[in-house]
Design a binder for these strands. Structure first.
Lengths: 252, 252
DNA sequence: CGACATGTTGAACCTCATCAACCGACGTGG
DNA sequence: CCACGTCGGTTGATGAGGTTCAACATGTCG
């Protein structure tokens, strides 16, 4: 593991929290103007290049963060190298385990990532002072737990092809939810895959080869169209949902 | 699914919360005397026979509960019947999803179960009034999330034999943690398996046949001793941990 | 005692992992 | 400029690990 000699570049906050792109969707959305100003005082932006480790289970993290842009993967690795991605965090998500020591996983930048970081102590102090924010964080944690449980069904009981379809469906729903820049009408939107085949495999409990094969299979079936390795389109969502095996991943 | 016509029997609280067997280990442990009295007013005991549904994803649950004794399994089922257990709750654990509508899973009694139930409204009111309790619930939720993520590694990346070994290891640690009644010295303690082979299979993402085969394999290897279908002993814990594939399930 | 549920064992099959070759894109250095 | 190594992805051949189907054992309850 390369240690992180200046893996992250601290950047000045672009203006105040009030101007933040994810402000109303992140946990800070719970705050009023006074609280926001206080939070703003301790917050600072960070850019993390893709592939860099953000938090490791070795050293306790000294900060929490909102994800402003990009995708963060949470991974666990067995002693012999087998790896599993146990969580994916997207734009307005919160990163870090409140209360209690170190996390039990790695957080890595799956793409280039922008973070809004809060130093440990200061953040927990604010959390204590503004219960609404703690409440909001709690609710997010419950959502994450629900998501983890949905994924357990996928890992334990779905076939390779259902797994891949479920993953694409999840990406499709996340992307459209956020608003796809390619949505200039005419034809289905083109989605971007924020993960390499290796990451997808680690997320689905498969190998890269199987992921690749299942994607070409779904393409052959007409369920998806592949536009280069990192982009895809879904002509008919219900067909994809069908291939995913109908579960709560897309019901939410 | 048999509907639950009086599936649960309401029983009088045996004395006050102060006498409760799990009081100091359950979330109520955070409460002082005043708060406890208030909680006691709305609490009532319930016995649930093994196999009965406690909460379903169909109708929103109208209560939360502490588990006083027994084991509760949280399950999710795909439309074609494939099932996955997404969580197991033991004695001092808390059952129910605070804030937000209905749960997205079934809660079923894996064994006969004793609950200490709190009606929805009253409980959330108390939660709001006593932040320490909400905090405690939050921390438990974080622990559950950690547990779910550990399980994702098991489901996605472990072999059948490692899965079974991990399960037995988890049971062994839970049992000794709680204190096994058979611990009358001489030889390793006899543990009870609180789940049927079918439940174990649903928890591990396997079939009953594979679970059975792997258990006899572990027995043949001398890692465990089987004493009838529902009991086992571990002569040498490190050997079991080894067979489980060294991960955080037993590191915690 | 037979009926039923739970668990074990056996044999055949199939999905997915493994090993390997190949392809295009990209960057580097001669 | 092109040879080259590398990296991410695809495709093929083969085999092992688990599922499936089936028979059998054991225990329990009427």
């Amino acid at each position: 593991m390369a240690r992180s000699e200046r893996a992250m570049e601290t950047v000045a906050m672009s203006g105040r929290c009030g101007l933040c792109a994810v402000r109303h969707r992140a946990i800070c959305g719970a705050l009023g103007e006074v609280e926001l100003r206080e939070l703003n005082r301790i917050a600072h932006g960070k850019r993390v290049a893709q592939g860099r480790v953000i938090m490791s289970d070795a050293e306790p993290a000294d900060f929490f963060a909102n994800i402003v842009s990009g995708v963060v993967k949470l991974t666990k690795t067995l002693s012999d190298g087998r790896q599993q991605i146990v969580g994916l965090l997207f734009a307005p998500d919160f990163l870090g385990r409140a209360f209690s020591g170190n996390n039990t996983y790695f957080a890595e930048a799956a793409t280039d990532v922008e973070l809004c970081c809060f130093p440990n102590a200061g953040f927990e102090r604010i959390l204590k002072r503004f219960p609404d924010m703690e409440r909001r964080l709690f609710e997010r944690t419950l959502d994450e737990l629900d998501g983890a449980r949905d994924w357990m069904v996928l890992l334990g009981r779905k076939t390779a092809s259902e797994k891949v379809a479920s993953f694409l469906l999840m990406i499709a729903r996340r992307s459209t939810a956020i608003g796809c820049e390619h949505s200039v009408s005419e034809g289905p939107a083109i989605m971007e895959l924020p993960l390499s085949r290796a990451d997808i495999a680690d997320y689905l409990g498969l190998t890269i080869e199987t992921v690749s094969r299942q994607m070409t299979k779904l393409k052959a079936l007409g369920v998806i169209r592949l536009e280069g390795g990192r982009h895809f389109a879904v002509p008919h969502m219900p067909a994809l949902a069908d291939a995913a095996g109908f579960d709560s991943v897309f019901t939410d």
